[in-house]
Each structure stands twice: as C-alpha cells, then as structure tokens.
Design a protein around this nucleic acid. Sequence first.
DNA 1: AATGGACGTTCCTATTTCGACATGTCAATC
DNA 2: GATTGACATGTCGAAATAGGAACGTCCATT
Lengths: 184, 184
Amino acid sequence: MSILSGKVPVMSLRHALLGLLANRSASGYDLLKAFETSLANVWPATQSQVYGELGKLSAEGLLDVTAEGPRGRKEYSITTSGRTELRHWLVEVEPERVRRSGMLLRVFFLDTLDPAEARDYLAAQAAAAAGTHAGLREVEANVEWDDSPLSMYGRIALEYGLRLSQVQREWAKWAAEQVAPPAQ
Amino acid sequence: MSILSGKVPVMSLRHALLGLLANRSASGYDLLKAFETSLANVWPATQSQVYGELGKLSAEGLLDVTAEGPRGRKEYSITTSGRTELRHWLVEVEPERVRRSGMLLRVFFLDTLDPAEARDYLAAQAAAAAGTHAGLREVEANVEWDDSPLSMYGRIALEYGLRLSQVQREWAKWAAEQVAPPAQ
DNA sequence: AATGGACGTTCCTATTTCGACATGTCAATC
DNA sequence: GATTGACATGTCGAAATAGGAACGTCCATT
C-alpha cells in the first residue's frame, strides 16, 4: 500500500487499528471501546474516524471482514499485508516529534506578566504535574500486572508517564525560582 | 469576548498572536516569520491561519490596525481588551494536557514484534533522544543570552526541552533493557 | 408484553489544520 | 528596461478531528 499510493498518510489512526487487530480480531464497536479506555490517553479517536478508517483499511486489503455477527456486527481481522504495513510503521517510519506545546507557548509569553504572577503560574503548573504523577502512581498500584507482553509494555508506557510528570514538576518548580525568589 | 460568546475556543493560535503583539506591533508577515523561527517548535502555524486569525481578532476588537505601510502592509497592535484576553488565557485557562503520543502508541504495539526487534527499536529511540539533547545543548551554547525577560524565559523553555529529551533517552534505554537483556 | 440499556453501524455538520495557488508591490541588480 | 527576490495578503480545497443524530438489534428485567 505504501508502495502503490503516492502519498503516505502520516496519520497513525490506521496503525492504531492495525495494532489492536494484530492481537485479536474485533468489531468496530470493540475497537471503539479500546479507544475510549486503554488508548484514551495515547491516541483518542471518535466513531466517525474508527468506522471510516475500518472501511478504507478493508478496501485496501489490510483488513478482512471474517465474520458477521448479530446486529450487523462485522468482525475485522488483520491480513498479511496489514501485518506488513504495521511492522513497517513500527520499525521503519520515524515517529514525528511532538510539535505543539501549549505549556511552552505560555512560557514564551510569561514576560507580559509581572514576575510574581509568572512565578505563581509556574508554581501552579508544578502542583498540577505533581497531581498527575500521584494519579499515575495510583493506577500503577491498582492494575493487576502479570507476565504477559501486554503487561510489560503497559508498565513501560506507564513508566514514561511517571517520568514525564516528574520532570515537569521539577522543571516548573525550578522555573518558578528562576523567575522570582520564593515568597516567604 | 470570552464572556460574550458561548463557546470559548481552546485553540491557542489567537493567544500566540496576542502574545507576540503584546511585546511589539507587527504585520502579518512579521508574525509569520516569528512562527517560522522562534515558535516553529512550540506552536507551528501557516499563512492561512495567521492572516485569517488576524482578521478575526481585529474584527473582535482584540487588535487594531494602527498603520498601513507599503505593499499593503498592515501593522497590527494589541488593544486593551486584547491584553485582557491574553492575561486571562495565561493565568486562568488551564492548559489542555497533551493527549496524543505517537511514541507511546508504538510502545503499545511493540508486543507484535519479537523482543529483539522491540529492544532495537527502543535503543534507536534512546539514540534519537540523545541527538535531540545534543542539538539543544548546542543551541544553548550559541545563543547570546542577556538579562532581558525574553532571554530568561527563552532559557527556561530551552531547559524544558533539555530535561525532556534527557528523560526520554533514559526511559528508552531502561525500556530496552526491560524488554530484552542487552546484546553483548 | 413492555421497556430500558448495551450493542452496532451509518451519516451528518462544524472546526481546525495544512498546503498550495493566486495576486500584487517594492527595491536592487543585470 | 527586464528580471529576480523579498515583502505582503488573500483564497481555495483536502484531510483530520470532534461530536452528535438517526437507525436498528438483541437481551434482561420488570
């Protein structure tokens, strides 16, 4: 597919669907649930996107409809070329780096505030990051981990979130002190 | 404006423009250059967006056209209500957290690869993050910092990038070791 | 038997973003 | 005087995103 068509879509929704279907076959509805739960904080998607993309993917031969169940349920399965495309994306396509940061955009314009306000803002950010970190710790404590690959990669993804929120908290705290000495 | 209209746009392009114009008046073209250079890695925007948004902002009274120069150049200046809106956004509107991460999406599907491949992928990510870090160090060394607020907030933003790439590198390295013991 | 809720798909509109195209002015240089 | 390149704005269409309306099926409970 990436050979046939001229423009390769950077969009990752299709690859998210391929990745989910690589583990087990599912209906659009099932996949939608996955986007609402496990993928909600990684790659959100809406109905229109999921059902639309499933249609395109099966038209391109990356998916097959392998069963039709009750209520018009269509069960999608990944095809060999679907697996090839997934693997290609995973290993060979370089991830586009994150380009937008609302937080940094704000930092750019903190110079329009006076230092005390800027310090307060940054302190609030540090507190927010600490809250995120605590939330993730709670998730970590409550999930039942086992020895499956899914658990392992879940732990690895969670660890990323933990480290990220930690560094945000430390940075915001440091930045607040740079801007103005802490209020006594 | 945020009082009058029912729905508050989350979009930050307008606030980026207000922030730039809070420091000095400029034309659309000038602002476009700012988006191509200093804001390129924080909040990218295209012509169509910039010119379109400038029109809306001045229609809403957040900006004024204070001068018309050669070649149809229009110089925009921020108004009092523009400053109010900027301040509101900076201080009171909570930043929407980052929701999408192509990197984490990939991690979710690394279980479709065998461990050795997954380890190699993560090692490549660690190397890429190290490269980013080195690039930022170079920027840090070459910029001429002074005592202006602009310099201070620039340093703070840069520090965020440095810490972020550092934590990405360390995490990817750690993750690779979790997935499979390092090859000798 | 009726009803409510989960299941399941399709279609619709609106907004944001991107990239490209179109148009034109001004200054310098060849 | 013609060409080039920086300056400067405007418009268009395609794609991605977001959210919801509409429709129907199956099942369990009342």
